[in-house]
Design a protein around this nucleic acid. Sequence first.
DNA 1: CGAGTGATTGACTTAGATCAATGACCGTGG
DNA 2: CCACGGTCATTGATCTAAGTCAATCACTCG
Lengths: 199, 199
Amino acid sequence: MSIEDSLPDAVRRESHTYSLQKGEVLFSQGSPTVGVYEVLSGRVRLARTNHTGHYALLYVAQAGDPLAEASVFTRAYHCEAAAVTPAVVRLYPKAALLTEFERDASFAKGYALMLAHQLMTARSRVERLSMRFARDRVRHYLVLNTNEDGCFIELPGTLKELARELGLTHEVLYRTLAQMTRDGEIERTGHRIRLLQTK
Amino acid sequence: MSIEDSLPDAVRRESHTYSLQKGEVLFSQGSPTVGVYEVLSGRVRLARTNHTGHYALLYVAQAGDPLAEASVFTRAYHCEAAAVTPAVVRLYPKAALLTEFERDASFAKGYALMLAHQLMTARSRVERLSMRFARDRVRHYLVLNTNEDGCFIELPGTLKELARELGLTHEVLYRTLAQMTRDGEIERTGHRIRLLQTK
DNA sequence: CGAGTGATTGACTTAGATCAATGACCGTGG
DNA sequence: CCACGGTCATTGATCTAAGTCAATCACTCG
């Protein structure tokens, strides 16, 4: 599901990594597209500036996230990318991607499928963030992130990171998890959470 | 940018429309994929149910929204779709889409580009919903939805609909717009908003 | 005309944000 | 080896923006 998985060796071989200092601009709005990036570490923000100078944040990509997936098909970047923290990114050059795309329909399918998955993920985050109560957001996240068995959730990072993902302060997340534990809705062992039947 | 635009006549010719009653299930989790849908009117919700019976809402598609874009590439639907209101949907059959996809690389590109745009839109909604204050969300929406000139916004629907899109109650949206008007940040004429320079 | 809905504003409630403090843990440099 | 700075996890007290409830007016449509 990550961008990396959907890329053939031919493309991977031509990729390069770049290190960015905090604040450094990776590409700017209107500049010609050179390819798709993947964030390896740190955070990179995408933002757009209006004709009238109004600014809006579009996306903050973290380790593992792809960046500028549309740029394969367009001439110029529609937004600016800049590092929020020191960051390392990998560039998959447009030419290699386009060649593969034309040459191999199964690569094209894989790329489209990857985009469709990213889209579904993003949409479910939208639904989650539309929920008013912290508890509902936490439940939603847990249900969509259980293991095969449907019971256990392995938290990928820190609880602070999860709080950010859920659009909550970390304090509220701690309290909510504590309350859910007290209520017998979940059980916690370190960074592993077990989702119990509520009925 | 809508799904319709990226489809060639060959596919459009094979599409069919279906009417759904409120609550009617369009497809269920695990059932074999028949194609991609587009919502013509009403609302259709996508939801997933866990092995353990836990339920989570993934997406609510409204008029103009595509549904199950990944289904072209997969055997079974990963979630359930059901009408929230009476709804009309259009089905683009999988076979026709797949044929086009294999046959015409430019269609494949168009489809992927459409997905990438949808993705960018969804991500910016995530950023918007992550903002704490109503005013910040409204500003974000306005900046990303100005006309060519970068000043005017034509509201597509009602303010109540916009409030839902912004994750706010309609009362709060009214108050926020009123306050922004008082503060000279925007001007309103019916469903047209003018974004002023804040300096 | 009357029912239904959107737009709007006021009064009150509340969940989450903020501020603050503490303990656990971890790596690092003297 | 241990002290110290840093971050994470956690909890309490307080504040506040948004939600809720309620009322009014305008408008549309059968």
